[in-house]
Write a protein that binds this DNA or RNA. Structure first.
Length: 568
RNA sequence: CGGGGUGUAGCUCAGUUUGGUAGAGCACUGCCUUCGGGAGGCAGGGGCCGCAGGUUCAAAUCCUGCCACCCCGACCA
């Protein structure tokens, strides 16, 4: 491809509203353009990368035995009513009406459609297992789209759905998909990590996310390097403290703490560490009353853990300040578990292990100190409620956790029978008995992979594409192209490289060298070859890898082999 | 949905306080010079100053309403 036939539309200046580096570089390199909030056009350069990722995904899914289909992006409401998600799914679901007033939606995911397809097409256990996938545009009406294609409303996703007669077969397929995903992300050249994950709204039991490690990632993950344990922090269990609770040493006292509300303020005022303060959070219970959640002052509530507790209403809802004032007569900052009549207490394991602690006195401007479980108030019910922290023991008992950030590029689920049961997807088994099938589902955010790759591979000059997903393999730059000898040499080399199957971007523009170099580096082409008068003189060309510091002189006769050795 | 902010050339932004002929840099077009790290000169093209009302002799600028976008939070997962 010649640059004179492939407008680059690179910019030197960084667009003002792009926050993260991948978004900035995708705009500056001319890969994408925003049409509207969360909606992006892929320009030719960006599309090339997107399609490379798509191709790797497709090849590995096919290799793993999955079958490609293509389902409609627009789906009828009936199917969603059948699965029960028409009412459950929030405003993220873009609902639409056609001219006949029939309701439908633009698909954010395709469990319903695929389950419907399955029940119409597959009759016998002998046709199982089967795994259908598609690569297709999804729409989720994100409340706050941001970071370019990283969290867009419309995006390209590979989604796969497998069907099985029993759980064992599902687990085997799940494992195969797990391996296929590892191959896919390895091939894209990304540093990634599979982590245990929550199943969320999709439902199901077992689930893993594939995280590309990046500081800009929106998810936090807990990792234990020695043992290999890795999980999304929202899921990672915090183990109860090993040491037994110290015996009470102080007596209960009420002290005035005027104006002190937050844990930090109270701890500072009382001269105690935050870990000696008890944090009391009031949330709505599943029966309509309030429930008090108790945490050590320096710990954070894990909302997902909380809302999975049977006594707590899901989604987690904090008590309103007004209601607390009315029912308890004090503000949030003065809440404590002592004497909270009629409100169940649930203490985090670490909170239950505290002794001689401080907490609110349920009276504005006062706190209690020297509080002890079992003496000043009953032993509480305990649960794992807190967010894990760096340095916590790993849940598998080996080593300690570190926290890292990641970008979720893939998510696989063992769904079970949630959809097949609701929608009557079954087959006849060996005995001629009708059996509800069990399902798995497997997603990859294809467009997000592109952004994640940039987050992980860039420098101050621009993108440094991993070779397998680079828009072009080689940049060929002619310097002093108006010199007939240079033009001729560059044309000849371009023809030769193209003929040997190398994907070349030939910068044949009448531009200064600095402009060409800067553009080729910004758009991140992995290999660069320069043809110049000075090199022609001694029968060589100049080679430089995108991450190399210095160029290398390579004999003209050897450059094609030289490149091929580096392309693989 | 709540709070904050911004809308002026394709992009990055001045100009708004104090009303008086719409600007700069980059990008774009032409010519000349230059040519191994985003060149220089000259000459150009490009604007419903987000939209709609209002005040005024006169509005990018003041007033009212609306819209869009961005950030933080909540929501969603």
């Amino acid at each position: 491809m010649r640059v004179t036939r492939f407008p680059l539309s690179t910019t030197r200046e960084t667009p003002a509203d792009a926050e993260i580096v991948s978004h900035q570089l995708m705009l500056r390199a001319g890969m994408i353009r925003r049409l509207s909030s969360g909606l992006y056009t892929w320009l030719p350069l960006g599309l090339r990368v997107l399609q490379k990722v798509e191709r790797i995904v497709r090849e590995e899914m096919n290799r793993a035995g999955a079958l490609e289909v293509l389902m409609p992006a627009v789906q009828p409401a009936e199917l969603w009513q059948e699965s029960g998600r028409w009412d459950k799914y929030g405003p993220e679901l873009l609902r639409i009406k056609d001219r006949h007033d029939r309701e439908g939606c633009f698909g954010p995911t395709h469990e319903e459609v695929i389950t419907d397809l399955f029940r119409r097409e597959i009759r016998s256990y002998r046709q199982l297992p089967v795994n259908y996938y598609q690569i297709q545009t999804k729409f989720r009406d994100e409340i706050r789209p941001r970071f370019g294609v990283m969290r867009a409303r419309e995006f390209l996703m590979k989604d796969a759905y497998s069907f099985h007669l029993d759980e064992d077969d599902l687990r085997a397929e799940y494992q195969r998909m797990h391996e296929a995903y590892c191959r896919i992300f390895q091939r894209t050249g990304l540093a990634f990590r599979p982590v245990e994950a929550d199943t969320g709204a999709i439902g199901g039991s077992v689930s893993h996310e594939f995280m590309v490690l990046a500081d800009s990632g929106e998810d936090a993950i807990a990792v234990c390097e020695p043992s290999g344990y890795a999980a999304n922090v929202e899921l990672a269990p915090a183990l109860p403290p090993q040491e037994p609770r110290p015996a009470p040493g102080a007596s209960l006292e009420e002290v005035a703490t005027p104006g002190q509300r937050t844990i930090a303020e109270v701890a500072d005022y009382l001269g105690l560490p935050e870990s000696q303060n008890l944090k009391t959070l009031l949330v709505e219970g599943s029966e309509g009353g309030l429930v008090a959640l108790l945490l050590r002052g320096d710990h954070e509530l894990n909302e997902l853990k909380a809302e999975k507790h049977p006594a707590i209403k899901a989604p987690l809802t904090f008590a309103e300040a007004e209601r607390v004032e009315r029912e308890l007569g004090c503000p949030f900052g003065s809440l404590g578990p002592v004497g909270l009549e009629g409100i169940p207490l649930i203490a985090d394991h670490a909170a239950a292990a505290m002794a001689d602690f401080a907490c609110g006195a349920n009276r504005e401007g006062y706190h209690l100190t020297g509080v002890n479980w079992g003496r000043d108030l009953p032993e509480p019910e305990t649960a794992d409620l807190r967010e894990v922290e760096a340095g916590d023991p790993s849940p598998d008992g080996e080593g300690t956790l570190t926290l890292r950030r990641g970008i979720e590029v893939g998510h696989i689920f063992q769904l079970g029978t949630t959809y097949s049961a609701a929608m009557g997807a079954s087959v006849l088994d060996e005995q001629g008995q009708e059996r509800t099938v069990t399902m798995g589902c497997y997603g990859i955010g294809v467009s997000r992979v592109v952004a994640a790759a940039i987050e992980q591979n860039h420098d101050d000059k621009g993108i440094c594409w991993p070779a397998p997903i680079a828009p072009f393999q080689v940049a060929l730059v002619a310097i002093k192209a108006e010199d007939p000898a240079v033009a001729e040499a560059a044309e000849a080399l371009y023809a030769e490289l193209t003929a040997s199957g190398i994907d070349v971007l030939f910068d044949d523009r009448d531009a200064r060298p600095g402009v060409k170099f800067a553009d080729m580096e910004l758009i991140g082409i992995p290999h660069r070859v320069v043809v110049s008068p000075r090199a022609i003189q001694d029968g060589s060309v100049e080679y430089k890898g995108r991450r190399d510091d210095e160029p290398t002189s390579v004999p003209r006769a050897e450059i094609v082999t030289w490149l091929k050795n580096r392309l693989t």
